[in-house]
């Protein structure tokens, strides 16, 4: 009964999709507001990658909100999965002996872990020149930590240090925005010199904020995985 009703509902939604999509021509020029960003973006922000300049300069306040949503989701996960420490240690002692990763995984992840961290750092330092940036680099760093968690199940990251780095990078983001307010009157203004486009030291505050976002996203996602592994049960 429920299956039939839901299939009827889905058919109605599909007909609505067909009507809506037939009004949107695929592959035609529909660019309105972005023409301004494309034409003046390099001169105004100094970043060659227009997506980066939209994320951090024209809509930087929006990105601050997104980072806040990420932080609140991580805090909510920690609050939902909160357990007492004593119960958990008893559980750990019982199932310790069976969990041990194979030799290939342990050696390979020990070899690959610094390279993954280096690649993530490269991605978020070069965010204004090549595809990539803080969000992608942070995700790559978090997947490197995930590899270490798979290879060495007993070892954990230091929660105090990672929390400190995370909050410091969030504070750097807000602090740079407040400095823009001090120097030129608007929150998150690009007040540093723009430099020559297509070089590493260009685009003013954009690389600094992207490095901060990279650290924040990386430690945030690592903390989510750590909470899921440790706190539940």
């Amino acid at each position: 009964m429920r299956r039939i009703v839901s299939i009827i509902i889905l058919i109605i939604i599909a007909v609505g999709f067909i009507f809506a999509f037939s009004k949107i021509p695929f592959g035609k020029d529909k660019i309105n507001v972005a023409n301004y960003y494309i034409k003046k973006g390099i001169k105004q922000t100094g970043a060659v990658n227009i997506v980066t300049s939209v994320v951090l300069n024209y809509r930087g306040f929006d990105t601050l909100g997104e980072v806040t949503v990420l932080f609140i989701a991580a805090v909510g996960l920690g609050a939902v999965l909160f357990v007492e420490r004593k119960i958990q240690k008893n559980m750990d002692d019982k199932e310790d002996k069976t969990k041990r990763a194979s030799l290939i995984l342990r050696t390979g992840s020990r070899l690959l872990f610094p390279l993954i961290l280096l690649f993530g750092a490269y991605i978020f330092v070069h965010g204004h020149l090549t595809p990539g940036g803080g969000f992608q680099g942070g995700a790559i760093i978090a997947s490197g930590f995930l590899l270490m968690y798979l290879a060495f199940p007993k070892q954990r990251i230091n929660k105090k240090t990672s929390g400190l780095a995370e909050s410091l990078s969030g504070l750097i983001f807000v602090g740079i925005g407040l400095l823009g307010l001090v120097f030129s009157g608007y929150f998150l203004t690009n007040f540093l010199p723009k430099g020559i486009p297509n070089t590493l030291f260009s685009a003013g505050i954009i690389p600094i904020i992207y490095i901060a976002i990279g650290f924040k996203v990386g430690f945030e996602l690592t903390g989510i995985i750590d909470d899921l592994l440790e706190r539940s049960r």
Binding site: N49, G132, Q136, I140, S143, L146, I225
Partner: peptide
């Protein structure tokens, strides 16, 4: 390419890990 990089790192890597832990 920016979105492709984010989706490859997050959608195929971290999401799977989170699901399998759950």
């Amino acid at each position: 390419p920016d979105v492709a990089m984010a989706e490859a790192a997050i959608g195929a890597g971290l999401t799977t890990a989170v699901f399998i832990i759950a």
